[in-house]
């Protein structure tokens, strides 16, 4: 197949005057785990609902498994496993019968959900109403995975899961990819994607502001140096050193955000008396926050600039 399982071009969606998506373009390739990250309200859920034909785009095009979701209908959705972001189920039903019904309307055999429920430690005899948020999420995950669809669309899949179950979920994702399935999952927390996503797209106010393999994204933010000098130093001088993106004084420490080769910085530091230095690996959460801030500065008039170098 020349086209990836998800191809979105200049996708737009407005609700009245509110623009939820402002020209979103992204491609997910077959067999990859694509992490879709953005703050709440950035348009992640709207995008996923367009893929499932719950919402219709106001402009642009969407292709899912080579088909326009508006045309694909039931046959297309039989090939997708979807976990809604705000999962709501028939509260009065028991887990088992509800999942049996879900299998029927997903064209799977009635018991197909059982292995997943077992893995996730889900008791099928419980009433859905009595389940905790995490257990409800397990029901939703079993529903999405059980028919082994070509494409999994998972909206905030780890929400409510304890760390142990999160690991189990990551294992399920890896196995799915091993079978050739494609996974498109969203989160507003980078740490949840870090473990499984191969590529990450960052969405901000309905637009993609960055898209890169995880490693590249990690490299783009570089390293944070924390340095204590024995005597006062000229911060501006440090800021001029090549590779330094920001400098700030925190108490008696100086923090430097740095990308690229550290050679020039180290040589500059060597001219001073340094009593402490720490170089931290890039924190992706920070990286994404920086991306948001940059995007915010670009789109807005820079209202809260200066709060951070």
């Amino acid at each position: 197949m020349s086209q990836g399982p998800i191809v979105l071009e200049d996708l737009r969606k407005s609700y009245g005057k509110v623009e939820a998506l402002r020209g979103l373009t992204l491609q997910v390739s077959a067999g990859e785990v694509y992490g879709f990250i953005g703050p709440n309200g950035a348009g992640k859920t709207t995008t996923m609902r367009i893929l499932l034909d719950v919402l219709r785009p106001s402009g642009g095009t969407a292709r899912v498994l080579g088909v326009d979701p508006r045309e694909g209908g039931a046959d297309l959705r039989a090939r997708i496993g979807y976990l809604p972001g705000e999962l709501a189920m028939e509260e009065r039903s028991d887990v088992g019968p509800w999942l049996d019904y879900q299998m029927r309307i997903h064209r799977a055999s009635p018991g197909a959900w059982r292995p997943y429920a077992e893995r996730l430690g889900l008791d099928p005899s419980r009433r859905i109403r009595d389940l905790s948020r995490g257990n409800k999420q397990k029901v939703g995950l079993a529903r999405a995975f059980a028919h082994e669809p070509e494409l999994l669309v998972l909206d905030e899949p780890t929400g409510g899961l304890d760390p142990l179950m999160q690991q189990e979920f990551y294992a399920m994702v890896r196995e799915a990819v091993g079978r050739g399935q494609t996974v498109f999952l969203s989160s507003h927390v980078m740490s949840e994607l870090e473990q499984v996503a191969e590529r990450v797209g960052v969405i901000w106010e309905g637009r993609m502001i960055a898209e890169a393999p995880l490693e590249e994204l990690r490299g783009s933010i570089g390293t944070r140096f924390t340095v204590r000098f024995d005597s006062a130093v000229d911060l501006d001088e440090l800021a001029r050193v090549s590779g330094v993106n920001g400098v700030q004084q925190v108490g008696d420490l100086v923090e430097l955000d740095h990308t690229g080769s550290p050679d020039a910085l180290l040589k500059t530091l060597a001219a001073h008396t340094v009593s402490h230095v720490r170089a931290e690996p890039p924190d992706l959460e920070d990286a994404v926050l920086q991306l948001y801030r940059r995007a915010d500065g670009d789109s807005a008039t820079g209202a809260d600039e200066g709060s951070r170098a």
Binding site: L52, A74, D75, R77, A78, P84, E86, A88, I105
Partner: peptide, 17 residues
């Protein structure tokens, strides 16, 4: 409005059905 319709319309059934 409660959201429970979503698990049905996103399954392999036509919305008309």
């Amino acid at each position: 409005q409660t959201g429970s319709l979503e698990t049905e319309v996103t399954a392999a059934v036509d919305r008309r059905d």
